[in-house]
Amino acid sequence: MPVNIAVLAKQVIDPEMPMAAFRIDDTAKSVVPPASIPPVVNGFDENAVEAALQIKDSQEATVTVLSMGTSFALDVMKKPLSMGADELVLLQDDSFENTIDSFFTAQVLTSAINKLGGFDLIICGRQASDWDNAQVPLGVAEILGLSTVALGKKVDVAGDKVSVERVTPDGYEVVEAPLPALVTVSNELGQPRYPTLRGIMAATRKRPTIWSASDLDMDAGQLEPRVTLRNLFIPVREQQCEMVEGEDGADAGRQLALRLREAKII
């Protein structure tokens, strides 16, 4: 039996965009997507795709990517397909707007996972670079009652178990958990692979499954918002930087040491 893997991925505003382009709409309490910079697949979610594809490299596996949002840039969301994933399921509805509420997002994703018949292994990025909540994956695991390993940097499946090298503050530990399981991964997993030409061709032809809220069986009580966004602002940095200069770089280095000594910092 092939290992049936799902990857949860989110389309986000490119976190690498210049900070000058970062603007907030005070009325909508949201970040304004910069007009000239396309969105991206959340970086840690690309690590999750890579983790799934590494499993698929060594054994029979299918990789389904699921995403929730109000609208999608199809060429962006097809990137996991061009890297080698098999299926793409987009949960798209105007009501899927409040992604700061992880409880809501996890409920929607869970109902789609159930509709797809469940998976042996669900792999997710540790957090999304927009709201940095780091909650949805663990929430999905809790709702589905899956065994869970957080912050993996290497994920292997052997038989009915998943084995994960889990990042710790001073190294890593190897954790085993029974399938079905959910694993979150981090950047320590390594650079995601580049799409191949063949992959890009296949992805172009592939049509994603698109479901709206009405296609999903959801309990209204579970969709009540848990988190309310009261305000959103850009923090003001008030630090005044004293520039230490010198005749050349080396002199500036010496002057810096003197300045720090004067200020009794070293």
Binding site: R237, Q239, C241, M243, G249, D251, A252, R254, A257, L260
Partner: peptide
Amino acid sequence: KEARYGVIGDWEQVVPAFAEA
């Protein structure tokens, strides 16, 4: 913007001289 002290320069020149000082 966050630093209290700054040196604009190539680390290869600044750091060894800083360390020596």
